[in-house]
Each structure stands twice: as structure tokens, then as C-alpha cells.
Amino acid sequence: MSRMWFAHDLETVATFWRILRRDGVTLGFTTHDRDLWLDGVLHRASPGMVPSSIRKSADFEPDSAEVRGSITHEAIASDDLASGRFDGAQVRIGLVDWESGEREVLYAGTVGTVTEEDGAFSAELVSRKAELWRDPIPRTSPACRAAFCGPGCNLNPQAFTRQVHLASADPLANAVTFAGVPEAALHAGGTVRWLDGPQAGVVMGVMGPDAAGGLVLDVPIDEAIPAGTPALLREGCDRTLGTCATRFGNAVNFRGEPYLPGNDMLTRYPGPNP
């Protein structure tokens, strides 16, 4: 049986929240006046961060919660929020008895929309119940619906991923050039994961090649990133059947309907025979 919280006038209870970012970094915070170790994670005292009321329901409606705070703690910086380090991060919010260590998670979800204004941030949290609203039935599409090297595609990501080193960066064009990369066009739609430097752990999408043969990224690069910074570069796919069959030999796993008539079929008008 779970504990009945706030059953007495005076209790040794504090709020804690834990952020598990997609780059592997885990951050913990608490409203207590000193740091607490919970589940092997140091939760730092951060009274400036305040979780709003948590609404939980027994139906399928997603639970709602929000976290507000000032960008003063060293673990949460404005540059990290702008670069997307917290996008899609998992969040756990709960109560802890800072004397006995007894704790209970009240809310589990992911970070949604993050806004910043006047040195403060506000993060909307999306509960796990929101996954129940997703339509599990795939819709038809001429292009492949599977993520490259992901479920459904079934290609081995290691075969199309290589470790490279930064040769040069152009912050104005938001493009980078890596040493030893054969064809930049093959990496359109791929990813770059930085292994070191000011943006270590950040995954960026490759939008395509630029005129100089570099790769244009979808996330702003740090101007201070030095040459020689290592990264994991993965090739991309344009999600067409021709590419899947000729370049990857993977047409059997193509998740699309390229020959299915589309809505334009309704607007066609028969013409006279030549």
C-alpha cells in the first residue's frame, strides 16, 4: 500500500523531478534545501524550478503538467534549450521524504514545447497516455514510412555509420565538412551525432549538400566547434522505391505504395485517343 502523503500538518516532504535527455545525460532537481541522492542520481537543490499542478485522470485523456523555472542552474542553459538538447527528453516528477528516502513518482512523460522569455523557461510536459491517441494503423504513402535503419526498414545501422572528423565548419551556412566523406549527396536525410566538443551528444539531421560539398544541418552549430572534432555520420535515404531497391537492395522491406493511385486520380479527365 502506497503512503498517504500530506496526512499531517508537518511532514519532511519535497518535490523532485528527473530529466533523462536523449543524449544520455540525466539531470535531477529537488525543492529541498540540499542535494539528494535518489536511485543513483544526484538531485540538486533548485528552488527556482517549480512544477505546476499535475492533473491525472482515469480515462484516456492525456494528463497535463508543466514546469517553470529560471535559467540560472548550470545544468540548464539557454544554449542547451535552443540547440534542442531537452527536446523529447523523458521526465519523472514525484514526492520524496528527505528523511526516510521514501518516494513516489506522480507523473511520467516527455518534454514537449519549451519557451524562453526574460531569462526564464517554461516546458510543457506530454504524458505517456498521449501515446494512446496515436493511430496504430499506417496510412498509405508513395514514400517509405519506415525510419532509415529503424523498425520495418531492418537494415543494419552499423553498415551505414562511420566515425569522421570535422574538417571545417561554416556557421553562416550552417554547414560542415568532414574529412574522407566520399559523396555528400548520399548523406541527405542522414544524421550527425557529435562525440566531443561543445555540442557533444547532440544529434543533428542532414538536410543535404551545399555548393561546396559540405553538409547542411538542421540544428545551429556552435561557432566555437574546433576542427578535428569527432562525430558519427550516418547515411540518409530519400525513401523512394528506386533507391531502396538499387542502392540498398532492400525493396522487400519497402514500407510504401508507390503505384497506388492518389487523389489526383479524381481530377483526371479522359482525352481523345491520338
Score class of each variant (00 low, 15 high):
Glu61Phe: 02
Arg103His: 15
Pro47Trp: 03
Leu42Phe: 02
Ser46Ile: 02
Gly40His: 05
Glu74His: 14
Ala77Arg: 15
Pro62His: 01
Ser83Cys: 07
Ala58Met: 14
Ala89Arg: 03
Leu106Gly: 15
Pro47Ala: 05
Lys56Glu: 11
Ser70Pro: 02
Ser46His: 06
Ala65Cys: 06
Ser78Gly: 12
Asp87Ser: 12
Ser52Ala: 15
Arg55Met: 01
Pro62Met: 02
Ser53Tyr: 12
Val50Cys: 06
Ser52Tyr: 04
Val96Met: 11
Ser70His: 14
Glu99Tyr: 15
Met49Glu: 04
Gln90Asn: 12
Ser57Phe: 08
Arg34Tyr: 07
Val67Ala: 00
Ile71Trp: 10
Ile76Pro: 05
Gln90Trp: 13
Ser83Lys: 09
Phe60Met: 07
Ala45Gly: 07
Gln90Ser: 14
Lys56Gly: 04
Asp39Cys: 11
Gly94Pro: 05
Glu104Asn: 12
Asp63Pro: 02
His73Pro: 00
Asp59Ala: 09
Ser52Gly: 11
Val91Cys: 08
Ala58His: 05
Thr72His: 06
Ile71Ser: 04
Leu106Ala: 14
Asp33Pro: 14
Ala75Tyr: 11
Ile71Cys: 05
Gly88Cys: 04
Val50Glu: 11
Asp80Leu: 14
Val50Thr: 13
Ile76Trp: 01
Val50Ser: 03
Val41His: 11
Gly69Pro: 04
Ala82His: 12
Asp39Ser: 11
Ala89Phe: 04
